[in-house]
Design a protein around this nucleic acid. Structure first.
Lengths: 235, 235
DNA sequence: GTCCGGATGTGGCGTTCGTCACAGAGGAAA
DNA sequence: TTTCCTCTGTGACGAACGCCACATCCGGAC
């Protein structure tokens, strides 16, 4: 467990990197360079990959698995800012300035993670202008997502935020607009994602079930009426 | 009114730019180049400098005055994401990707604004590596502010969010931790800043007054007990 | 199988805050 | 001055949701 990968993994790493929007722009050779410049490592479910407040000296790619981005306030309250899955990049923020990690990353499933040292990434930026553009696009998406999240918290009730969240999770989950089945994602996690308490989320889910918008079986949520969910989420 | 500035303004523009964290890194010559590469323009109070959804082809600097960043949801609800004052940069987001403006900018006082075309900014980035670093730092601060705002909306009640907001506004306003006097900033604006309704903000203000944390005279708010306000805001 | 710990489904109660409504205050225009 | 309009302060009512408490369910350890 948690052993660092040997060089034989480089090809598999490269394969995943070539599917990320950030590194796709590099030619095949460039991607191979990147894969060799970093290290990949495996994590068990529930491990903390990155702790809020730590110094940040690497850029990460979640090669496989599932993780959550957790922001902890001064009072210990936790809000989950985002879910990460295969191909997602994280740890970008600490590359901008030299600042400490602004959030923690915790696996919700076994994960395989690639880490690229900051210095190497800066070199790559200078060698490949296209990479800069993609990196900026990545940041743009992050800012947009955060502003949307703030607006949602201000102007949607819990049911609306939950509907929107389920649509987003289902989209990312494979079959578009169908099933949310993220093992390791409890109702407490959902609560932290929408900024509410666990019992409130439970009731909101039951309400959506009662109106035939979704069906819940164990930890699998099936979207029954996507159009109605969109309306519920203010779309 | 609204006349474009003549070339004689270039020096005054340069003087303000040299005080912004973004352009300060350029040498005196570089700043003069920047000042000549863009145009400055004046706006009356209440004018919209930038409309959400428009194509974004420039970077802006608020040289003088006061403005608010307004995000409008699909349903017409408005949230004020930030207040801008002299020396603040805005319109960065559209430079990242070619995407449309993600929010509107509306003056709350007469304002003097400098606009730098995207193409020129990109050239500058390539000529001055230090500028890239500062730009990334700027983005980092934006992301951090937004994540904090999201956490506040999720876990602070209205009184707490208001206390925090007043501390921030007073800080930026000159004398640290003393007086908030932003003409043109109504209680409706405060409401949009903390994600609440105007009557609720009024009551929260009255409550702070009743506990002697602040004093309100017209549109001037005086911070009486900064320590208690910090506690109220969860700091 | 039994035990146990975490996850889920509900109930009750109190507070916060949205919503609607209206009355007074202040400032700008005629 | 009067008029008008925006902003401010407040009341009443109800829905949403936090908080606390508890019963049930399920999966894993043994």
């Amino acid at each position: 467990m948690n052993a660092r990968s040997g060089p034989h993994d480089a090809e598999r790493v490269a394969a995943v990197l070539s599917r990320t929007s950030l590194f796709r722009v590099l030619e095949e050779d460039g991607i191979r360079d990147v894969a060799r410049a970093g290290l990949s490592r495996r994590y068990r479910q529930g491990e903390t990959i990155l702790r809020q407040g730590d110094p940040g000296e690497s850029l990460f790619v979640l090669l496989d698995g599932l993780a959550k981005v957790v922001f902890t306030t001064e009072h210990g309250a936790e809000i989950v800012l985002n879910m990460l899955e295969g191909g997602d990049v994280f740890g970008e923020l600490a590359l901008l300035d030299g600042s400490p990690r602004s959030a923690s990353i915790v696996t919700t499933r076994p994960a395989w993670v690639f880490a690229l040292p900051r210095a190497r990434f800066v070199e790559l930026i200078h060698e490949h202008p296209g990479l800069t553009d993609e990196f900026l696009r990545l940041l743009g998406r992050m800012v947009r997502r955060l502003t949307g999240q703030a607006a949602d918290l201000a102007y949607l009730d819990l049911g609306g935020r939950l509907a929107k969240l389920l649509l987003r999770l289902a989209d990312r989950n494979g079959r578009p607009g169908d099933v949310v089945d993220l093992p390791g994602l409890t109702q407490s996690d959902l609560a932290a994602l929408v900024g509410a308490t666990r019992p409130a989320v439970n009731r909101a889910l039951q309400s959506l079930v009662a109106h035939h918008l979704i069906a819940v079986h164990g930890r699998t949520i099936t979207l029954l009426d996507v159009a109605a969910l969109r309306r519920r989420g203010g779309l």
